[in-house]
Lab assay of single mutants.
Amino acid sequence: LKGYACRHCFTTTSKDWHHGGRENILLCTDCRIHFKKYGELP
C-alpha cells in the first residue's frame, strides 16, 4: 500500500500494516510483532 508509514519506526515499506500499540497507531509488521511479543515497541 502506498502512502502508509509506520508511526513508530517511520518505514514506508512493510509487507502488511496493522493498528496496534497502546494508542492503536499504524504499525509496520516488524513493530507489531515486537509489540505482541514484548508488550512494548522496539
Rank of each mutant, 00 (worst) to 15 (best):
R32D: 13
R32C: 09
I33Q: 15
D16Q: 02
R32E: 12
I33A: 15
R22F: 11
G21Y: 01
I25H: 08
K36G: 15
G3F: 05
C31R: 00
N24R: 08
D30F: 03
L26D: 05
H34F: 06
H18C: 12
C6D: 00
T11S: 10
Y38K: 13
L26H: 03
K15A: 09
P42G: 01
S14L: 01
S14G: 04
H19P: 12
L41F: 15
C28K: 00
T12V: 03
F35P: 02
C31V: 00
F10K: 14
H8F: 03
T11F: 01
A5L: 13
T29V: 08
C6G: 00
R7P: 04
D30N: 10
L27A: 02
L26V: 07
L26R: 06
D16H: 01
C9L: 01
C28T: 00
I25L: 12
L27P: 02
H19F: 11
F35Q: 11
Y38S: 13
L26E: 08
H34C: 15
C6L: 00
N24I: 04
T29Q: 10
G3R: 09
R32L: 11
W17V: 08
L26T: 12
E40L: 09
L26S: 03
G20L: 04
H18N: 09
T29Y: 14
C31H: 00
H18Y: 10
G21N: 01
G20W: 08
A5G: 14
A5K: 10
E23P: 06
T13G: 09
N24Q: 13
K36F: 15
F35M: 08
G39E: 11
R7T: 13
T12I: 15
S14W: 01
H18F: 13
K15W: 02
L41S: 03
K2P: 03
G20Y: 02
A5S: 13
L41H: 02
C9M: 01
G21E: 08
G39P: 02
T11V: 07
F10G: 13
G39K: 14
H19D: 06
E23V: 03
C6H: 01
D30M: 08
F35R: 05
H8L: 01
G20R: 02
D16E: 08
G39Y: 05
T12A: 06
C28M: 00
H18W: 06
Y4R: 08
K37L: 07
C31T: 00
R7F: 07
A5N: 09
E40Y: 08
E40D: 10
G21D: 05
R22M: 07
L27G: 01
K2Y: 02
C31M: 00
D30A: 09
L27D: 01
C6R: 00
G39V: 02
H18I: 11
K37W: 09
Y38I: 04
T13N: 12
Y4T: 11
Y4G: 06
W17I: 14
G20C: 10
T13C: 08
C9W: 01
L41K: 04
H8G: 06
H34W: 13
G3V: 06
L1F: 14
C31E: 00
G39N: 14
F35V: 11
K36A: 15
G21L: 05
P42V: 02
T11D: 04
P42E: 04
A5V: 12
R7N: 09
C9T: 02
K37Q: 13
L41G: 05
E40N: 09
H34I: 02
K15S: 08
L1S: 13
K36R: 13
K2T: 03
T13W: 04
Y38H: 09
S14Y: 02
F10R: 13
G39S: 07
L27F: 02
C31W: 00
A5P: 03
P42M: 04
K15I: 06
Y4P: 05
L41A: 04
R32G: 13
Y38G: 07
H19S: 13
L41W: 04
E40K: 12
H19L: 12
L1W: 07
I25S: 07
G20V: 09
G21P: 05
G20D: 15
C9A: 02
G21T: 10
H34T: 06
A5Y: 09
K37H: 07
H8I: 04
G3T: 10
L27E: 04
N24C: 03
R22H: 06
E23N: 10
T12P: 04
R7C: 11
S14F: 01
K2F: 10
Y38Q: 11
Y4N: 15
L27K: 01
N24M: 09
N24V: 04
D30E: 11
D16K: 08
S14Q: 02
K2N: 12
F35T: 06
N24P: 05
S14E: 06
C9F: 01
H18K: 15
K37G: 07
E23S: 07
E40P: 01
Y38D: 09
K37M: 10
C9Y: 02
C28H: 00
Y4A: 06
E23K: 09
F35H: 13
W17L: 07
T11E: 02
H19I: 12
G21F: 03
A5H: 14
R22T: 14
H18A: 15
E40V: 12
I25E: 12
E23D: 14
T11R: 05
P42Q: 03
L26I: 13
R22N: 13
R7I: 07
G20Q: 07
T11L: 03
L26Q: 03
C31Y: 00
H18V: 12
T12S: 06
E23T: 10
F10C: 12
Y38E: 14
G21C: 07
T12H: 02
L41C: 06
H8N: 15
D16F: 02
C28I: 00
T11K: 07
Y38F: 11
T11W: 01
C28A: 00
G3I: 05
H19M: 14
L41N: 03
T11I: 06
R22S: 11
C28R: 00
L1T: 15
G20K: 03
C9N: 05
H19C: 12
L27R: 01
D30S: 10
H8T: 02
L41R: 03
F10Q: 14
I33Y: 13
K2V: 13
G21H: 12
I33L: 15
T12K: 09
D16M: 02
T11G: 05
L26Y: 02
S14M: 02
K2L: 07
H34K: 05
T29R: 09
W17K: 05
A5M: 12
R32K: 09
F10I: 03
I25Y: 07
D30W: 03
F35N: 05
S14I: 02
K2C: 09
Y38A: 11
T29E: 10
I33D: 15
D30I: 02
G3C: 06
D16R: 02
L1C: 15
A5W: 14
R7L: 11
L1G: 14
R7H: 02
S14N: 02
C9H: 01
T13D: 13
K37P: 04
I25V: 13
T11N: 08
Y4H: 10
G20F: 05
G20P: 03
G39Q: 10
G21R: 03
H18T: 13
L41E: 04
N24K: 08
F35K: 10
H8W: 12
K37D: 13
G39I: 01
C31S: 00
G3L: 06
D30V: 08
K36Q: 15
R32M: 13
N24A: 08
F10A: 15
T13K: 14
T12M: 05
R22E: 13
G21A: 08
L41Y: 06
E23H: 07
T12Y: 01
K2E: 12
C28S: 00
F10H: 15
G3E: 06
H18R: 07
S14C: 04
T29L: 10
K36N: 15
R32P: 01
T13I: 04
S14K: 11
W17T: 06
T13L: 06
H8M: 03
L27Q: 01
A5T: 14
D16T: 03
S14T: 06
Y38N: 15
G3A: 12
E23Q: 12
G39T: 04
W17A: 07
T13H: 12
C6T: 00
F35E: 14
R22A: 14
H19Y: 05
E23C: 08
H19E: 14
G3M: 09
Y38T: 15
K37C: 08
D16S: 05
T12W: 01
T29D: 08
K37T: 12
R7G: 14
E23L: 06
C6V: 00
Y4I: 10
L26M: 14
L27W: 05
R22P: 13
T12C: 04
H34R: 05
T11M: 02
H19A: 12
C6Y: 00
